[in-house]
């Protein structure tokens, strides 16, 4: 098998003890010896409850957080050993879509400014001039199902689903290979969630993206992801192909999670 696009090797993260106004906080082990490999072009789902370390892991992949021990490799190269220039180049290739589209768009920026900003940030890597940036913004908007007429509008004029499309367009602006999706649909209605999920499937097929999908909605993970990892209190409890895990979970934790999934069918016990 070829080199995975992202490899997380024995990563642990400990937040140190702190003394604050309200007394001591003890040491917190957010991640404990986590190893994951994400292959190019696949959708990898990371499932865990709140407080399980999903966010810490995501922040570590973006190198916003340095692991206490272990290595994170992007295409075989250790993030911790990269120079500032290399890191900047890397960040054009790893982008993120956040959970809440109402909180992650600057209300004072027009859609065009929002979508072109990553191109400005990564100007040295991408080297697009003003006109090319404008064209690319229009192209990105049509890619996510919006039109050029939306370029001059502001975030408050859009619905939740449309905002999340803008967030996706912004994430795609620097031409990433790996997209981190942090619960991109949990703030949306089911009807809109379905559209965004379909858009994500479609984009992956067209652009060959790799998804690192973080969620606690198992139904969505089952729908979108090829492989899944379950994380509980900072430890990886199970990893494997989506179908295998959902059909025959090995750990008690996986069984419990899957058992607690609210499925839209009439339970056999109902009268």
């Amino acid at each position: 098998m070829s080199e995975p696009i992202l490899r997380i090797e024995n990563v642990s993260k400990i937040y140190g003890a702190r003394r604050s106004l309200f007394g001591h906080t003890s040491e917190v082990q957010a991640l404990k010896d986590v190893s994951i490999a994400v292959n190019k072009g696949e959708s990898f789902g990371l499932v865990g409850e709140s407080g399980s370390g999903k966010t810490t892991l995501t922040r570590s992949i973006l190198h916003l957080e340095t692991p206490t021990s272990g290595r994170i490799l992007f295409e075989g190269r250790n993030l911790a050993e990269m120079s500032a220039v290399e890191l900047r180049r890397l960040r054009a290739r790893v982008q993120i879509v956040f959970q809440d589209p109402y909180a992650s768009l600057n209300p004072r920026m027009s859609v065009q400014d929002i979508v072109t900003e990553p191109m400005l940030v990564h100007h040295r890597t991408l080297g697009l001039d003003r006109r090319q940036r404008r064209d690319r913004a229009a192209e990105l908007l049509s890619l996510v199902g919006l039109g050029t007429q939306h370029l001059t509008r502001y975030p408050h004029e859009f619905s939740g689903g449309q905002r999340q499309r803008i967030c996706i367009a912004r994430a795609l602006a620097s031409g990433p290979d790996l997209l981190l999706l942090d619960e991109p649909t949990s703030a949306l209605d089911v009807s809109v969630q379905a559209q965004v999920l379909n858009l994500l499937c479609d984009l992956q097929d067209r652009l060959g993206l790799t998804y690192f999908f973080i969620s606690h909605d198992l139904a969505v993970v089952r729908y979108l992801c090829d492989r899944v990892a379950l994380i509980y209190r900072g430890e990886l409890v199970e990893e494997g192909d989506t179908d295998d895990i959902f059909d025959a979970p090995n750990s008690d934790y996986a069984r419990m999670l899957i058992g607690a999934m609210p499925e839209v069918r009439v339970p056999s016990t109902a009268t």
């Binding site: 969630q193 379905a194 999920l197 979108l224 959902f246 499925e263 839209v264």
Partner: peptide, 10 residues
């Protein structure tokens, strides 16, 4: 609109 066990990708 709800993904179920049977729904295929896309």
């Amino acid at each position: 609109a709800i993904p179920t066990k049977e729904s295929r990708r896309g």
